[in-house]
């Protein structure tokens, strides 16, 4: 996913200038890193060169000129194609927790790996409590709740792995130290 596609998507609501796009982005995607203005303008210029957006007017309200952009037909087609194609499911093959378990077994032993996993479990649970608080906060917006849900689902997946790994530390120790 690129910022360019995100800009195209936000412009589908109607013509906007860069400042509005930045604000809409940060509001709609609270879990994402806030966009820098420079990034927004650079992206809009690139999209303009590609013929996907076009400047429609220049606004001036108590400050600098603001170019208002709109989607072109080509931009609408590009957006529709992108929205239609599923994101490649991430393989999640890199698991830093597993690496740490193996190295703990090698460097310190089975009991230490067990203790490490239990500490990791507690750290994950603390994090899950934070996200759950965000979720139950009456002032949270639905995008914030959904972002917290996404984080919770991933932490929960890690936690299930930790619980399985806890039951297998002994077997794993035998296998990698034999």
């Amino acid at each position: 996913m690129s910022n360019a596609h995100v800009m195209l998507g936000l412009l589908s609501r109607g013509q906007q200038h860069g400042y509005d796009l930045k604000r809409a982005h940060d509001e709609q995607f609270p879990a994402a890193r806030p966009l820098a203005y420079g990034q927004v303008y650079a992206t809009l210029q690139r999209l303009e060169k590609q013929g996907l957006v076009e400047p429609v007017t220049v606004e001036r309200v108590d400050g600098p000129d603001r170019t208002v952009y709109a989607l072109t037909d080509a931009g609408r087609t590009e957006l529709a194609d992108w929205l239609d194609s599923p994101e490649p499911p991430s393989p999640y093959v890199s698991n830093p927790l597993a690496v740490k378990v193996t190295l703990t077994i090698l460097a310190a032993g089975e009991q230490e790996a067990h203790t490490y996993l239990r500490r990791q479990r507690a750290a994950h649970l603390d994090r899950m409590r934070d996200y759950t608080r965000t979720k139950t906060e009456p002032s949270s917006s639905l995008p914030q709740v959904l972002a917290a849900d996404y984080a919770l689902a991933h932490l929960d997946a890690d936690l299930r792995w930790i619980d399985t790994a806890l039951q297998r530390v002994g077997a794993l120790t035998k296998e990698i130290t034999s």
Partner: peptide, 9 residues
Amino acid sequence: DARVSAYGD
């Protein structure tokens, strides 16, 4: 369920 447990303090 850890996700339910996370509602606790």
